[in-house]
Write a protein that binds this DNA or RNA. Sequence first.
RNA 1: GCCCCUGUGGCGGAAUUGGUAGACGCGCUCGACUCAAAAUCGAGUUUCCUACGAAGUGCCGGUUCGAAUCCGGCCAGGGGUACCA
Length: 840
Amino acid sequence: MSSETRFDPASADARWQKAWEGAQTFRADSNSPRPKCFVLEMFPYPSGRIHIGHVRNYTMGDVLARYKRMTGHEVLHPMGWDAFGMPAENAAMEQGVHPGGWTRANIEHMKAQLKRLGFALDWSRELATCEPDYYGHEQALFLDMYAAGLVYRKESEVNWDPVDMTVLANEQVIDGKGWRSGAEVEKRKLNQWFLRITDFAEDLLEGLGTLDHWPDKVRLMQENWIGKSRGLEFSFDLSNGETLPVYTTRPDTIFGASFVAVAPDHPVAQGVAAQNCDAARFIELCKKGGTTAAELETAEKLGFDTGIGARHPFTGAYLPLYIANFVLMDYGTGAIMAVPGHDQRDFEFATRYGLPIPRVVAASLEDADKPFAGEAEAGDGVIVNSGFITGMSVEDAKREVIARIEGEGRGEGKTVWRLRDWGVSRQRYWGTPIPFIHCAGCGVVPAPKSSLPITLPEDVDFQTPGNPLLRHPTWKHVECPKCGAKAERETDTLDTFVDSSWYFLRFASQPADRPFDPEEVARWLPVEQYIGGIEHAILHLLYARFWTRALARMGQIEVKEPFASLFTQGMVTHETYSRRAGEREVFFSPEEVTRTGDGARLEADGSPVTIGRVIKMSKSKKNVVDPDTIIDRFGADAVRWFMLSDSPPERDLPWSEAGIEGCSRFVHRLWRLFGAHDAAAQGEDRPLERKAHQTVAAVAQDIEALGFNKAVARIYELTGAVEKARPSASRSAAIRTLVQLVAPMMPHLAEEAWAAMGQPGMIANAPWPAVDPALLVEDEVTIAVQHMGKLRDTLTAPRGAAKEDLEALALASENLQRSLAGAAVRKVIVVPDRLVNIVT
RNA sequence: GCCCCUGUGGCGGAAUUGGUAGACGCGCUCGACUCAAAAUCGAGUUUCCUACGAAGUGCCGGUUCGAAUCCGGCCAGGGGUACCA
């Protein structure tokens, strides 16, 4: 092979992609005797085009998949499409296209884009959740869950657009208004389908302890989300003769309660409203706005004094009972005892309505009457001003109050979860139809499994807001499976998170007659490495864990946790370019802009634009880079290399033009070096061999830990060392090693070089280079010489030198002696093979 | 609001997990090659300095012989917040 030939990505990429496809190189064989390894990246939503974030995600998975193949594993590395969801319906409304046609065209386009990147994917297992051969099985699983008692219906609130007469997603509520109509959004109750994820709260919490290869932050976030708390449920006697159960996690602060509050939709509030139109008007007011926690928690704290008194169980005093907008019906009992001194929300409320703010926790008994510094104190301390618990610690007081209340038969200690059941009903077309039938006589009846898949009708209209399934002239009209009378199908569809809660099982096996083959699931699951965005840390990952545990409890599979290792990758970011045009800010894409020193100009007319912050690439800010364009310019390998370089994979990666150009230069630099390979070269180069073996070992470690940026740095170092070395057999071996090292990252270049060197077969099937452990350790080390922890000198010593020898060597250093300046040595700290620190 | 994360040269980052801060890459500067440019190759590149050294990992404080790393308190940016996926 000649170094004169330039590496041509355009032809090499296509040639090798065809060769892999022809040989079915990446098809996973369930019957292989090799150890199985399931590498999975979160499947994409087919929005239209592959996003650079996808490229980063799938490149990481691909490097691991290819590396695992090289180390003797049978790898399952599949790809599919999370194909149901809102954007398809939005496209239907805006462009008059059909959601199905739009989605399938997007899949077609994005699949071609992915193929250009040379990913080692088993395309024979491709799936799309919007196809009946996927969602029909999902309907069957939903019926199984219903039979197992994990599905039920209840009323729950949605965002309601009173002008468009339609349910809005949280994303579609902007500043409390509907995104299309601009109407003030209201909360409205609907009867909806729920999954009993709370039945698994304890299991899901405990299971976190077994997930050793998950990031701590994700486990912590899930733990907080599940939110197990031990508290007290007890009842207030009300002045109107009723009793009101409340729940609190701080029974120790019970003497600090200065009012009691119920949620606006609490029965007590409803009862008051029935007789008091001011109360009714207040509850109406609380209905304004959306349903999100962030909105509820940051809204101004508002209340309505019912005039009812609630009798304190210990002091006998009557506390005012309010209806308050910040009390949630979904948590605890929908009613609280409010302790303004030690809960910030209660503090704000009490301040607004002039209610007392007693102190019942303080740093010490002496501080019992210390005033508050403008905010509640939620921290630990000693109980004060609290009758029989005064002087106790917070924990002791909790126990004591629970015991006393239980003894008096007024309530009981109770474990409460923050986790709520999973509402899966969506009043939308483009999702999995929920397989139930409503019959006037028989009630809610499950659709017979023989009727699955219940497919979506094709002839639907999106010009009117609301659910097209509900409006469809014929689709919902069916016979009741029980009594044969005229009945109606359920017109809600399933949350798309359901689709992504079991797709990994379908990847492992794809029988036509059932959702999965349990034996194949046992072979491939759990997923050895799951990779995706941190934005899925809670919802998707918790739902997938729940679904897996539910199927295990139902006896359908053995595995309890779907993902053995999880890696959450950062986003790809880019600076924004914009200009003010009156009220609005207009954004420009990087392609429309030229950077000039410290500014930027429009290419079209040279007018200046403002360079904004580096943020996540998004269509609305136009700071996106199209993968196709850069693959055209630099080839797949340079793009892949850039995705792995520099930024640690868990952190954000700022896209830069200069960065990708540097990567492209490195591809060609490697090609030139590979061209210098001489199979007949003679002679040994021990230091280079050492470097090569050390690099192989370190890169392997880095890839297994997904520390791709570090692997890249080491490959740069070895490349430099090989370039500088004189020709020898060792150097030729190092060049072959280098080809193997970059094979998972730059597969096209590696195949091309492998073939040119006359190596047998494709490098995709070659093994990872072997390491000679004897070459990994250096026999000399550099020792730091410090005085009071400050570096004064370095010296070279044999590895494993005795402490005394190192101390003597250090004390002989002139630089050290100058720093000591005759001071008496009080102590010498020697860390073998690392440093000597003299303390004076 | 609440939960979680991040912060190191001009830029992306490394640092054997408490032990020589700035590996490696980008950019920039100088040089070689060239009629010239590109490409390529070589050297340099934290700041200050009276050239001995000193300071330095968002800010303030603490623990330690020794702190980017541990602890406490702030600041800034990001992710999630249950109907975006």
